[in-house]
């Protein structure tokens, strides 16, 4: 009773199968094209895609014990995550999100509950002291004054900015009165005292740059995309004033000497691809790339685990001189880890 079956399909069957497969490919391509141009509203307006900031009840515990500073909460604490940060600070959220942001707690305080003379406190949890320093340093105001007994802090007429351990704080006053400024400083000291005290107030990257010519308080940490280059992350920069002109030096500690050397070479290649030209003659530092980028000069080199260089120098002698000093400064720093 064995029946016979075809070993191979016939021509018509093959043709039909090919047509069906072709149709499937066309349908798949259509779905792919449609999905690649998806209306943002489809995903962004899903109910589960709209997290909301959490505002505590009015009697919730304040984010700072303000009683010591003679202040009482004017509003309940608000808490924001990476998903909701834009609700509070809109377009500035990107800076924090690129620097390791974890959470924001914000609350307004005022003396005796008055609706004037209030201060809003923003406590950004940035996960690490380095991240906190990154957002602190990148937003540092030019017109500022130091704050007594707070290491990483400065004041402006109406505000106070500081880092403490993994936190970056902004205390924004509604006016520029000295009494409100005093209150803000008391609040800041209260926070520092309850979050590690002076032991937690170290400046990340301290000692990376030679001191001569260094503009005080100009050190910055760029967490990502430094100088517009995606591969440059965790880059410390500092300003130097040489012959009345501003020059930027940069240093970054990498995982290994090889990683530092590779990044130096990769950054050199990037600059060349953007139109930089190699400066003729001896490099200011052994193995350094010495480049002219339009009207400015760039130096890039590595020293042990450190990537370093000079950025946007107005003339070549200035760039070479600062690069030599930077290399000499980094030499002893790089030796112990080698």
């Amino acid at each position: 009773m064995n029946k016979t079956v075809s070993r191979k399909p016939g021509g018509i069957e093959t043709g039909i199968a090919m047509v069906v497969l072709a149709l499937l490919v066309i349908v798949g391509g259509g779905v792919y094209l449609r999905q690649s141009q998806i209306n943002p509203a489809v995903l962004a307006l899903r109910p589960d895609a709209q997290p909301a900031a959490v505002a505590d009840t009015p009697d919730a515990k304040a984010i700072i014990d303000a009683n010591m500073a003679g202040m009482v909460p004017l509003s309940p604490p608000e808490h924001f995550t990476a998903e909701t940060l834009y609700e509070k600070i809109d377009g500035r959220a990107d800076l924090y999100l690129a620097s390791g942001f974890v959470g924001l707690a914000a609350q307004r305080f005022s003396p005796n509950g008055s609706t004037t003379g209030w201060v809003e406190v923003f406590v950004y949890d940035m996960a690490t002291p380095e991240n906190a320093f990154a957002v602190f340093s990148q937003q540092r105001r030019e017109k500022r004054q130091p704050v007594a007994s707070l290491a990483n802090a400065y004041r402006t007429p109406n505000a106070l900015f500081m880092t403490q351990d993994r936190y970056y704080l902004e205390l924004i006053g509604a006016d520029a009165t000295e009494s409100l400024q005093t209150t803000m400083q008391n609040l800041a000291r209260q926070f520092a005292a309850t979050h590690g005290g002076t032991a937690a107030a170290k400046v990340p990257g301290e000692g990376l740059f030679p001191e001569t010519g260094l503009v005080a308080g100009s050190e910055r940490l760029i967490a990502a995309n430094a100088f517009g280059d995606e591969q440059l992350d965790h880059i410390y920069t500092a300003d130097y004033r040489i012959d009345g002109k501003r020059v930027i030096a940069f240093v970054s500690r990498r995982e290994s000497s090889q990683a530092a050397a590779d990044l130096a070479d990769s950054y050199r290649q990037t600059l060349l691809s953007y139109g930089a030209e190699t400066v003729e003659g001896a490099a200011p530092v052994g193995d350094a790339a010495f480049l002219r980028m339009f009207d400015t000069f760039e130096v890039v080199f590595s020293r042990g685990k450190y990537l370093a260089g000079v950025h946007e120098a107005a003339d070549s002698a200035m760039a070479a001189g600062l690069a030599k000093r930077l290399a000499n400064h980094l030499d002893p720093l790089s030796r112990p880890s080698e």
Binding site: R92, R141, R144
Partner: peptide, 12 residues
């Protein structure tokens, strides 16, 4: 001029 859009300091 700086630190927009929120600012926060009169020095901005």
């Amino acid at each position: 001029l700086t630190n927009g859009p929120t600012g926060g300091s009169l020095s901005d």
